[in-house]
């Protein structure tokens, strides 16, 4: 049987991150209807039929089933917590559902350090975030603010 030991992401320190630093892009998907249905099940939310019924989606004038914006945002949020490591404390997170993610689309999680600063003895990093698809269209712009641990701190 294939077994992997899961471990927490390594600690990343404030000093390790420079402004302009680009995090390695993380690819999710291809996103399938199953991802959407699993999310609906996890949230017990089945009321927006266009998220799982193509007939309903097209009747509503949509091109087809859309994956849920909050699911895509959660994938991005998860990626941020991986990039920033075990001891980062997420303070703010923002996402905008700008473009649709549809079944069989790939979702690429992108992030860079926009700014780092000290305030009241605490160390913060601001990230510019986005989800792009296989056509390089931005479906979800976003941003995050996190408090980071200091080396020797």
């Amino acid at each position: 049987m294939f077994k992997v030991n899961m471990v927490e992401p390594p600690v990343v320190y404030f000093e390790d991150l420079a402004e302009g630093h680009e995090f390695p892009t993380v690819t999710k998907g291809p996103m399938m209807v199953g991802h959407q249905v699993r999310w609906a099940g996890a949230c017990d939310n089945y009321e927006s039929e266009f998220h799982h019924d193509e007939h309903v989606a097209k009747a509503a004038g949509l091109p087809g089933i859309l994956l849920s914006g909050p699911l895509m945002a959660s994938l991005l949020l998860t990626t941020v917590t991986q990039w920033l490591g075990r001891d980062a404390r997420l303070v703010r997170f923002f996402d905008q559902n700008r473009g649709a993610t549809m079944p069989r689309d790939t979702a690429l999680m992108n992030g860079r350090v926009k700014r780092k600063y000290l305030e009241s003895g605490k160390a913060f990093v601001e990230l510019d975030l986005s989800i792009t698809n296989q056509r390089s269209e931005v479906t979800t712009p976003g941003s995050a603010l996190a408090e980071m641990p200091r080396r020797g701190g």
Partner: peptide, 30 residues
């Protein structure tokens, strides 16, 4: 956490979660 494809031990493994800043398992941020 399975739906958001994020199986970090801090969500399910008390032993590893004890070593984190949370001191025990937590649910994902959102």
């Amino acid at each position: 956490f399975q739906a958001i494809i994020d199986p970090k031990p801090v969500y399910w493994d008390e032993d590893q979660a004890k070593e984190t800043r949370y001191g025990g398992t937590i649910a994902p941020p959102a």
